Amino acid sequence: MTSLHLPDLRLSDFDAITFDVYGTLIDWEPSIADFLLRWAAEHGVAADAQTLVMAFDGARARIQKERPAHLYPVVLEKCFDQICAEFGVPVNEDRRRQFAASPHTWPAFADSHDGLVRLQQSARIGALSNIDVASLETSCRILDFRFDVVVTAQRVGAYKPDWPHFDTGIGELGRLGVPRERILHVGQSLRADITPANKLGLRSAWINRPGRLLGLSGEGAAEARPDLTVSSLAELVAALTKAD
């Protein structure tokens, strides 16, 4: 995957910035890895964090293609079931329930709140998230931030990289007077965010946070072409505002 770094991408080019949430603003991956490492230790499974995270990523991608779409807690339950089957471990119902409820415990990245507040001074801020409404509401409280436009998987009955999130978000922003060419989409997942943004003609920024793996492989990820690549939201804000 080759990315483009365009120094003239400016905040003034955009009237709206839409964000993926989990992996981009909420730091979910270490929590998932820690949970699965504890589970593995309980059952004598000899697997490292990377192996377990990638097992989760593969299960998640498969389950999110199922229609009708499942609510995200059910996605997590099904992921847990598949991981148990992959490693030959019986499903523990308590652990399964805990995994399904884990979005309510995932922390924000340290730069998320300040970055979102800064960008909202100049643009409408949207969330296009593969999540359920209740989990996102908890995450908004953790972020201490309210989005101008919110599109969840629960709302549209589908999961990115399918297009309903984007179609709905683009439509809502259009009704607010924001044309497609004035939207920047920001995400950590190449598979679920950058690739579909490319196909829909949206300019995009990839926040390639160090040490994170989720969403960087699988369907379409190798073809992703972000317009700007940064390692944090703080770096994105600095790049956009410096160009202005």
Rank of each mutant, 00 (worst) to 15 (best):
M1S: 11
T2R: 09
T2K: 13
L4G: 12
P7E: 00
L9C: 00
R10F: 01
L11I: 11
S12F: 07
I17W: 06
I17D: 07
T18A: 11
V21R: 00
Y22D: 03
Y22Q: 06
T24S: 01
I26L: 00
W28E: 07
S31A: 14
L36D: 00
R38C: 04
A41Y: 06
E42M: 13
V45W: 14
A47F: 06
Q50E: 14
M54A: 05
A55W: 11
R60F: 08
R62S: 12
Q64E: 15
E66R: 10
E66K: 04
R67H: 13
R67G: 07
A69Y: 00
A69W: 00
H70K: 12
H70T: 02
L71Q: 12
P73G: 08
V74N: 03
D81E: 09
A85K: 13
E86I: 01
G88D: 00
G88P: 03
V89E: 08
D94M: 11
Q98F: 10
A100D: 01
A100Y: 06
P103F: 05
S112G: 04
L116N: 02
V117D: 15
R118V: 03
A123V: 10
I125M: 10
I125S: 06
G126S: 04
G126P: 09
E137K: 15
S139E: 12
I142V: 15
L143M: 04
D144M: 09
D144G: 15
F145I: 00
F145W: 05
R146Y: 08
F147P: 07
D148P: 09
V149C: 13
V150K: 14
V150Q: 10
K160A: 10
P164H: 02
F166Y: 15
D167R: 14
I170Q: 08
L173Y: 02
G174M: 05
V178P: 02
R182S: 05
H185R: 05
H185S: 01
L190D: 02
A192C: 12
D193R: 02
I194C: 08
P196G: 05
P196S: 14
A197G: 09
A197Y: 05
A197H: 04
N198H: 04
N198L: 06
G201M: 01
G201E: 07
N208V: 05
R209I: 02
R209A: 08
R212L: 15
L214M: 14
G215A: 07
G218L: 03
G218I: 04
A221N: 06
A222V: 13
A224G: 01
P226V: 03
T229D: 06
T229M: 07
T229K: 11
S231A: 15
S232D: 06
V237H: 03
L240A: 00
T241D: 09
T241N: 12
K242E: 12
